[in-house]
């Protein structure tokens, strides 16, 4: 069985998990200095608590500059790029799953590849 947990924003829940609770931690980061700062704190906690492999999912990436900035911030991690995608905004607005709005949109496709990364 695969268990997927969506933790509270920030690092509070992560700091309260027992060590080695999960096989992998996906840290979602946006291309802003504030988000990068908080993601760095989450990675530090996940590493310290041995919460499996850490995968950095770079979300809302609009262009190559965003990607470069994020890669520079996390040089020890290969990034899983989730592009900025109006399908996600539409799904959020309407309370729908992005998969149901457009299963082959760029962001949904990227998240599908995240699943593949996690299962390998």
């Amino acid at each position: 069985m695969v268990i997927v947990a969506d933790l509270e924003a920030g690092i509070g829940t992560l700091t309260r998990l027992e060590d080695e609770s999960v096989d992998a931690t996906v840290v979602v980061v946006e291309p802003t200095p504030r988000s990068i700062d908080i993601a760095a704190r989450a990675i530090a906690v996940a590493d310290e608590r041995k919460q499996g492999r850490v995968i950095v999912a770079a979300n809302k990436v609009a262009d190559a500059d965003d990607e470069r900035r994020l890669q520079a911030a996390f040089p020890d991690h290969s990034l899983l790029i989730v592009p900025a995608d109006p399908v996600i905004d539409r799904a959020d607005r309407d309370g729908l799953s992005p998969v149901d709005v457009d299963p082959i949109s760029p962001a949904v496709s990227a998240i599908e590849s995240l699943a593949e990364v996690l299962l390998t």
Binding site: I11, T15, R16, R41, V45, E48
Partner: peptide, 17 residues
Amino acid sequence: CPDGVRYLQFGNLWGHI
């Protein structure tokens, strides 16, 4: 801070609260 605002915080975490 700019405009003369004073900013009171208790700090930022790198681990447990």
